[in-house]
């Protein structure tokens, strides 16, 4: 019987494995190697040690600026998206009529792609700013808040749906018992609802965190980094290092590795937090 299965193993595994090797695993390993070399076409790589990593920070301030900009954007987005999504979810689980309709509508922006979203908001924000005689390219502050608004519009509906699912999983008796014990609305929220909602909160924080940190399409379409490179986030900076300048491929790859390590660190911390929470329950 076991031998019988072995005959079929390649049929089950091979197509996925070949595709996975070609588009992910080999490029990933080659990427790590190339970050220690200087190259323009991959085949002409010469070993330069850590030079690319040093150049990523010393050649210009673009990468560091992009890092701070991305970090600030991520913090503001994670807080605002989750707060607003939670409030919406809270209101939508109060048993109002039309709840389903509202939920459906709020989710729509999440289905629209980043490039299209970027141009939609470029129109709206430039329209508002034109009243003051300026546009998005005038100041990085406008670009920053533009991106935050865009991110909120895109993600609130998605996070709200996860919060709604979480809130619906909390047995109503828990809240009733709290009310009988004389807990007020806010007390119930803080000591009963929020602790029970922790799994949803962790998921939503993680999703908004990684989505904000890795954002590319919306950044490219809304500001493309303007003014100058002031609103350029990490992903866009890496892209421009590869394709927008000459002889910087090695530096671009080194930046990409650093970017990967940052994202991986987030994911690991997240995994830890989730695991420790699960142990408590």
């Amino acid at each position: 019987m076991q031998r019988n299965v072995r005959k079929y193993v390649w049929l089950f595994l091979l197509p996925t494995l070949i595709a996975f090797l070609i588009s992910f695993l080999i490029p990933f390993l080659a990427g790590i190697y190339l970050s220690f070399t200087e190259f323009t076409t991959v085949t002409d790589a010469t070993w330069v040690g850590l030079q690319n990593y040093v150049r990523a920070f010393t050649e210009d301030r673009d990468f560091l600026n992009a890092f701070w900009f991305t970090l600030k954007f991520t913090i503001v987005s994670v807080l605002s998206v989750n707060l607003l999504a939670f409030i919406l979810a809270f209101l939508l689980t109060k048993g109002l009529r039309g709840t389903n309709f509202f939920r459906t509508v709020f989710f729509v922006p999440n289905l629209i792609g980043g490039i299209v979203l970027g141009y939609i908001w470029q129109l709206i924000i430039n329209g508002i700013l034109s009243g003051m005689g300026v546009d998005l390219t005038y100041s990085a502050t406008y670009g920053f808040w533009g991106l935050v608004v865009l991110m909120n519009w895109q993600m609130i509906g998605y996070m709200m749906i996860i919060y709604v699912a979480g809130l619906q999983n909390i047995p109503t008796e828990m809240q009733e018992v709290a009310a009988i014990d004389g807990a007020g609305g806010l007390q119930t929220l803080r000591h009963v609802t929020l602790p029970l909602l922790m799994p949803s909160i962790t998921i939503c924080t993680f999703l908004t965190l990684t989505n904000s940190f890795k954002m590319f399409d919306q950044n490219l379409a809304l500001t493309a980094g303007a003014p100058g490179k002031e609103t350029q986030m990490l992903a866009l900076d890496i892209y421009n290092t590869f394709y927008g300048s000459i002889g910087q491929e090695g530096v671009g790859q080194a930046k990409a590795v650093i970017f990967f390590l940052l994202v991986a660190a987030f994911a690991l911390i997240q995994l830890r937090v989730t695991k420790s929470r699960e142990a408590d329950l």
């Binding site: 996975f20 588009s23 992910f24 695993l25 080999i26 490029p27 990933f28 080659a30 990427g31 190339l34 991959v42 890795k214 590319f216 990490l234 992903a235 890496i238 892209y239 590869f242 491929e249 671009g252 790859q253 990409a256 590795v257 970017f259 990967f260 994202v263 991986a264 994911a267």
Partner: peptide
């Protein structure tokens, strides 16, 4: 592979 951002492998 799920946690690796696209920029890491896009060039290669």
């Amino acid at each position: 592979s799920m946690i690796v951002p696209f920029q890491m492998v896009m060039f290669t």
